[in-house]
């Protein structure tokens, strides 16, 4: 049996104000568990970007965080429209977010690139019309 700690969050799709609550909660828990500040920062930022993506594009979704002594695994899953072209979506500055979202300061096309930047591993499984599952791993150095 593995000895991971698991946290589960429902990310609500209609609310930009509450978006980020799961990330802030994870940050708090990791701090209580004594992880280094750099690890906590990377996990919580990567997760926040994922949360915001699910709110913008997929009417919400689910987030699971698995905490191991040597790594933290973040799994984000939604039943949104899927990503048609992952290579394009990974480019900094490319965004399909609507203008209403941009006026809030989102939609800069930096979400997925930031998630990759802050994690050691990132895997995207996406099917158009079905949904997207993103798995990220942050290693504890």
């Amino acid at each position: 049996m593995s000895d991971e700690l698991k946290f589960h969050f429902d990310v609500h799709g209609d609310n930009f104000t509450s978006a980020g609550e799961a990330s802030v909660e994870v940050k708090k828990k990791l701090r209580q568990l004594g992880f280094p500040p750099d690890v906590i920062r990377r996990v919580s930022i990567a997760m926040y970007e994922g949360e915001i993506n699910m709110v913008i594009h997929a009417r919400g979704g689910e987030a699971d965080v698995l905490v191991y002594p040597d790594r933290i695994v973040i799994v984000l899953e939604d039943h949104g429209p899927g990503i048609a072209n992952i290579d394009l979506a990974m480019q900094e500055g490319y965004s399909t977010a609507p203008d209403s979202v941009r006026s809030l300061g989102f939609g800069a096309g930096m979400g997925l690139p930031n998630m990759k930047r802050y994690t050691e591993e990132m895997n995207i499984e996406s099917t158009v019309g079905v949904g997207t599952k993103i798995t990220m791993v942050v290693k504890v150095q």
Binding site: A19, G20, S23, Y48, G105, F106, A108
Partner: peptide
């Protein structure tokens, strides 16, 4: 642009912005 701020601002920086919606609190917390 909040993702830029999250990606580039360093812990301890003073962050200057004209954005004032609730998301700035989440970004600042992270």
């Amino acid at each position: 642009l909040l993702s830029w701020v999250m990606g580039r601002a360093q812990s301890g920086d003073a962050w200057v912005t004209i954005m004032s919606n609730a998301n700035i609190v989440a970004v600042a917390t992270l």
